[in-house]
Design a protein around this nucleic acid. Structure first.
Lengths: 105, 105
DNA sequence: GTCCGTGCAAAGGGTTTGCATTCCC
DNA sequence: GGGAATGCAAACCCTTTGCACGGAC
């Protein structure tokens, strides 16, 4: 298990969403750029590593990540939208002294 | 003269802009609605009193009013722009004790 | 009379959607 | 294999722009 809490990828899994290379990549790029990219910028960066990626997948993935509260929409400009990765929420661990099972909340 | 400072209409005149019924009307509607209208909403209200008014005139007038600092653009939504009238700036009067002429600044 | 401002329609640009194909589970 | 996710292109919608006419000064 992780020491730092639920990985964003695990959030996808927990919500029954499929984990695709496109989603991994877009999430990673948003995390790397700390909130200064718009959809087109994300698309450009992502295409460098995954040329088949389409812009509509970027938009759909950003919508999904926003629904799951992994990404936040910013109001930096009025004519386009910018996104930033949400910091992981604070949480605690419950550890069972008998079996060692850990629950995060 | 006014006790409250330069009228928005006078700002237009002072900047060499023409005072048209469309501009008067759009300015008035923005002032009446305290910042909760988008361009289309302004257009709808305005057409009630001036049916010939076009949406592009609304946009061009809002641009002008924003340039003249009479109106402010809000970030209420990411998919459209909202506008509000700017409150009149504070100012003082200089009164000539000889001829009575008043200058605002 | 000038030429700025307007109306109309078409273009622009970011975002969304329909549909066949791909591929994660 | 089944259904969610993707890619592509077209559709959408807000906003901007080109152009000829109209009206403020």
């Amino acid at each position: 298990m992780s020491e730092k809490g639920l990985e964003p990828i695990s959030v996808l899994r927990a919500k029954g969403k499929r984990i695709t290379p496109q989603r991994r990549l877009i999430l990673q790029i948003v995390q790397e750029h700390k909130g200064h990219l718009d959809a087109d910028g994300i698309h450009l960066w992502a295409k460098g590593r995954y040329p088949r990626l389409s812009l509509s997948t970027v938009y759909r993935t950003l919508d999904l990540l926003r629904e799951l509260d992994l990404v936040k929409e910013l109001g930096l400009a009025t004519d386009r939208r910018h996104y930033e990765a949400k910091p992981r929420e604070e949480h605690q661990h419950l550890v069972c002294l008998g079996c060692g099972k850990v629950i995060e909340f």
